[in-house]
Nucleic acid binder design. Structure first.
Length: 449
RNA sequence: GGCCCUAUCGUCUAGUGGUUAGGACACGGCCUUCUCAAGGCUGUAACCGGGGUUCGACUCCCCGUAGGGUCACCA
């Protein structure tokens, strides 16, 4: 038995755009595989294209992973390793395995001279850890370009050189790289680098089954979008892990730590998976409920505080509204939607009630209803102006249970909100304040004969 | 179009020759409930087609078909 060498993985994004959810999943699978094998994980920022690479995107990538809680053992900037790439380039040229090629210039920006790899035109086969055996005839690739000039190495060369120097043992990357693999293997063989093991993971697809791309599918492909919408990092990680992988059981909720032990590369799906935001919302809700209630309420309060729609509410009212909302949302971004769609204008303006709707469907008696409303008023008058939901409840509930909950609670709630659907009466009375609640109940009672 | 990959409910998927084809999201119903939401129970819903192999195919093989990826002096 030879001592197994340490596993080294890498995630190698190019900073030409914001961090993509597909990239996050690639990074996640690398992370899980490396961690569970006590291996090393490297973040390699592939910025050899000076035209398109931007520092802000490199920052976005690093910040994104920091937010997610995915850590790398090492971060390398590919452009800083260019001397190394040049070294391999000159070796290839010396050996006659690459050459300076005179080009016909047909497009603007095209060089008259580039470095091409001398393709041995062989068949290349490799055993992908996910896809299985794959074969290519490299003849059709021709003598592909590996550098713009002696000092400007390109993608394929840089990847192979860096993977070699960094001792990468497993290349886990998106399926869109599958056709790059034979080229890279050819270069490896030319520079005498060992071949790493490949695992090409299926793509994350949009609803139309095409690859998620910013150009086609907009902002919702970037991690930042979900971060700004208030999704929880652990929910995103869990959801992404389940997209294309499953543990073989019915279990669906996993912490990152649990994923490290449960994840199996050979259980990764072969086909692409459509990104389903509804399922993400569900996962997020599960994690939201797992968080301490106080913490969630605090975040919701903060959001309400900055929300113009609730500016008119006093601070204590915002906290109470936040407490109610905290139980109802799947994602923090839903708050605004709820405020608008459900219409909570009744929080700021007393409703005008239709007397008929004030009556409980199972017992539509105006006289009784009026008596009940006035009795509720009496009970509320015993309370402090800012009584809590619990205080309101213990003041009203015994009476409601005695007389029939619907008979009391429906008219009470309707008198306070003027709506068929609203926050429950106890929360509502507490949220409006006792003084305002009494006033609304009296107004409603007066509508009844 | 060439090359490569893929194919189970609408979606994510379990399944590895014999299953009432299982779970989750979404959707519908019921219960709970003052309404809404949550929660509980439950229902509708799938093996792309055609040939083989086999006593027997969702499962193995071949051929179609469909979808996707990739074909840069980007990564």
């Amino acid at each position: 038995m030879s001592k197994p060498s340490k596993i080294v993985c890498r995630f190698a994004p190019s900073p030409t755009g914001p961090l993509h959810v597909g990239g996050v999943r690639s990074a996640l699978f690398n992370y899980l595989f490396a961690k569970q094998n006590n291996g090393k994980l490297v973040l390699r920022v592939e910025d050899t294209d000076k035209e398109r690479s931007k520092q802000e995107y490199a920052d976005d990538i690093v910040e994104g992973f920091k937010w997610l809680g995915l850590s790398f053992d090492e971060t390398v900037i590919q452009s800083e390793r260019i001397e190394n790439h040049k070294k391999y380039l000159s070796i290839l040229i010396e050996k006659g395995l690459a050459y300076v090629s005179k080009e016909k210039v047909t497009e603007e920006g095209q060089r008259a001279e580039v470095i091409r790899f001398k393709n041995p035109n062989r068949k290349i086969a490799f055993d992908d850890l996910i896809k299985g055996h794959i074969e290519f005839d490299t003849t059709e690739l021709g003598d592909f370009v590996i550098a713009k000039s002696l000092s400007e190495p390109l993608f394929h060369l840089a990847v192979v050189a860096d993977d070699f120097d960094m001792g990468i043992t497993h290349v886990i990357r998106g399926e869109d790289h599958i056709s790059n693999t034979p080229r890279q293997i050819l270069i490896q063989e030319a520079i005498g680098a060992p071949r790493p093991l490949y695992a090409h993971i299926p793509l994350i697809l949009a609803t139309d089954k095409s690859k998620l791309s910013k150009r086609k599918h907009g902002e919702s492909v970037s991690l930042k979008f979900y971060r700004e919408q208030g999704y929880l990092p652990e929910a995103l990680i869990n959801f992404l892990a389940l997209l294309g992988w499953n543990p073989g059981s019915d279990r669906e909720l996993f912490s990152l730590k649990e994923l490290v032990t449960e994840f199996k590369l050979d259980r990764v799906q072969k086909g692409g998976a459509i990104f389903n935001p509804e399922k993400l919302n569900w996962v997020n809700k599960e994690y939201l409920h797992l968080r301490p209630k106080g913490e969630v309420v605090e975040t919701v309060t903060q959001i309400l505080h900055e929300e113009p729609l609730t500016k008119y509410l006093a601070d204590w009212q915002q906290v109470r509204l936040a407490t109610i909302l905290a139980d109802r949302i799947q994602v923090f971004s839903e708050i605004k939607k709820i405020l608008i769609e459900e219409g909570i204008e009744y929080l700021s303006h007393a409703p005008t009630c239709n007397p008929t709707e004030l009556l409980w469907k199972k017992s539509p008696d105006p006289q009784n209803t009026k008596t009940h409303l006035l009795h509720v008023v009496k009970l509320l008058e015993e309370l402090e102006p800012t009584a809590s939901m619990e205080e309101v409840q213990s003041a009203i509930l015994p009476y409601a249970e005695k007389e029939g909950k619907g008979e009391i609670l429906w008219p009470m709630r309707f008198a306070l909100s003027g709506k068929q659907k609203s926050i429950d009466p106890f929360n509502l009375a507490s949220l409006l304040g006792i003084t305002e609640s009494i006033s609304r109940l009296k107004t409603a009672a007066n509508l009844l004969q």
